[in-house]
Design a protein around this nucleic acid. Structure first.
Lengths: 203, 203, 203, 203
DNA sequence: TATGAATGAGAGTTCATTCAT
DNA sequence: GATGAATGAACTCTCATTCAT
């Protein structure tokens, strides 16, 4: 009988995750503040009460979405890096995050949404800052490795370069997400590659 | 008599502008989506109906705020640049935008708010993209001047460098606004100066 | 100087009447309850404050409209009757009121509006009942004349026939105004002529 | 469990109908345009939100009221006709609709309200015209039966007589509802009987 | 575990009206 | 005499949430 319960739980958890994935698109599409239970219901077919049963408060749902999206994003980049050895190519793989390869701009929009939410929610802020650090560390490791390997020639502290790099990625994503005709995804990719090349002292 | 009316109108316009200035803080503080008429009323002492009489819809009010903030921001930087001749110092003057000197982070928060709103409002999007270009052009001019003056040594297209610079500014402002203890305003200023120095080929 | 004032007053009264005429269409179109000052402003170009200056309260305006419309209606029928001598033709002239000849169905709609308003406003009710009586008396006179002239052969009290006649007119106007495809204006005219012929004992 | 749910639904539907019945009086009393949610709340004890949950928009509520009233009216006359065989008496039974026997003048006022609303709402108009036809058909059947039975002697098309009859009923109800002291319910009943007798050729 | 029924709090918006010019 | 500015009151509607099943 405990197995039956276990299976029911698993099924339930599965459904919860499915709902969460769809909710991500909804939040990315409408913005967190404008996302109502009813919107998620419309997108998932799961009744409002059930959503509340799964996630609790509307805020709880949003935070669950943010968490889920942040993790998915990081995981996706991790997978992409798996087979890449060269530091520069690893850097570019992360940068292509920007060109929209990872789920159109859903990921990026959610990132802004959660960032904005974190401005006013201390608990979420801690998580977001943690994520920030994860990315910084990941980038710094790559840069350190690149310097060791003689691929990069820079005297700067790797963590500083990492912060500059992430800032460039974020800052270039803004106009791309907004659809600026003067800064398309491809152009942003080029600008980014050029800037990162200069900042790392790429050989 | 027309003079009297004229004065009434002028006083009215003045009051409108005052309200707008206060509304900026409110929107920066609470976020656009969470800003209710009642919040602006509480902050200004001006009744809800009067706000609607001045601005129309809640959305209209928000857009008026965005417009006002964008203009103020640009004007403020313009003033700051007025007495500065050296290209590098001009660049740094704009960059100090980031360190919060211009108006705590109110300006920056409003920038994100309007950016986010523009994602879903085509009309506002056009304006925001226009503002983007204004900044790009301003930066490019400075870079061009710096190259001519022999202050910067780079073979890159000035407009490209401008875009990289603005991306860095925006991207570094994110963690600062969020209060990341690892990326304070001062540190961000240093990171920015360093990166801009490398990207422009500062001598 | 008193002449100047007199002229100003006359001009003002003229304007007031003009506004009233337009307001009639507005009320007929939108219904009394749904008629706002703003609607009348939109239709006349006269500012809201000016309307209030002319008519006072919104209710006052509506009642002015009802009064104006009732009088216009009665006057219009009076003119139409002026050159008609034969009792039956006089009856038909009044009946053609129904076919919409007098002013599309504006007149009739206003009649229903004022009737409905009179249900809840004692003062207006008195006026509307007075108008009712005016019509009854007019019809009864025609019938009496027709009997005297040997045109009608009925033993009924003329005032009773008048009431039946007016009821028929009102009752047939309802579906016509509603646009019932089974009771068009022309058909209603025939039904009315037939019924009145039978009720008056037309020879 | 499905039984329990079924019962909850049934109870809910019951409550909805109860509310609707009370709402009818409110609308008849105040007029449709002047009926606010708050008025129905005051009369029923059911909260505003609940009314909206049941009926939707304010307009939806009004239309539900109109529908309910129209059906009730028709049903009530149907019951009254059940035991009556003689065509003339059947006609009089319908006519007594006017004398206010069927629920004071609530029914009639609602009829006017829905008629007026139908002027501006196409969907409702279709329904009202349908109701109109129902009454016409009912009356025409009675007249046809009366002619066959030799009770009525008229060469007119039954449907035409039906339309004249309904017009008389409607037209006489107007002054009665308005409380015209010269056309009371009883007098209107006599006028109607007299006129219908003449139009049908009652023997 | 999952879901429909019911409801209160809150917000935007409309509109008549008052006041000053 | 005529009109724009300002404002409060009223109302509808949305939405999260609680309760019962």
């Amino acid at each position: 009988m405990s197995e039956v319960i276990g299976e029911a739980r698993r099924r339930s958890a599965r459904k919860r995750a499915d709902v969460l994935a769809v909710a991500c698109s909804v939040v990315a599409e409408r913005g967190a503040d404008a996302t109502r239970f009813a919107d998620v219901t419309a997108a998932t077919g799961v009744g409002v009460s059930t959503l509340q049963y799964y996630f609790g408060t509307r805020e709880d749902l949003l935070i669950a979405v943010f968490r889920f999206a942040a993790q998915s994003d990081f995981d996706a980049v991790g997978e992409r890096l798996a087979g890449v050895a060269d530091p520069w190519e690893r850097l570019m793989a992360i940068a292509s995050h920007l060109t929209g390869a990872i789920g159109s701009d859903t990921g990026w929009r959610l990132w802004v949404e959660s960032w904005r939410w974190a401005l006013r929610d201390p608990e979420l802020r801690a998580e977001v800052l943690g994520d920030y650090t994860r990315w910084h560390v990941l980038l710094a490791e790559i840069i350190t490795a690149g310097v060791s390997a003689g691929r990069f020639a820079t005297d700067a502290v790797p963590m500083d370069v990492a912060r500059q790099a992430l800032a460039l990625i974020d800052g270039l994503a803004l106009p791309v997400a907004l659809g600026d005709p003067q800064v398309t995804g491809a152009m942003a990719g080029d600008l980014l590659a050029d800037a990162l090349g200069r900042l790392t002292g790429l050989r």
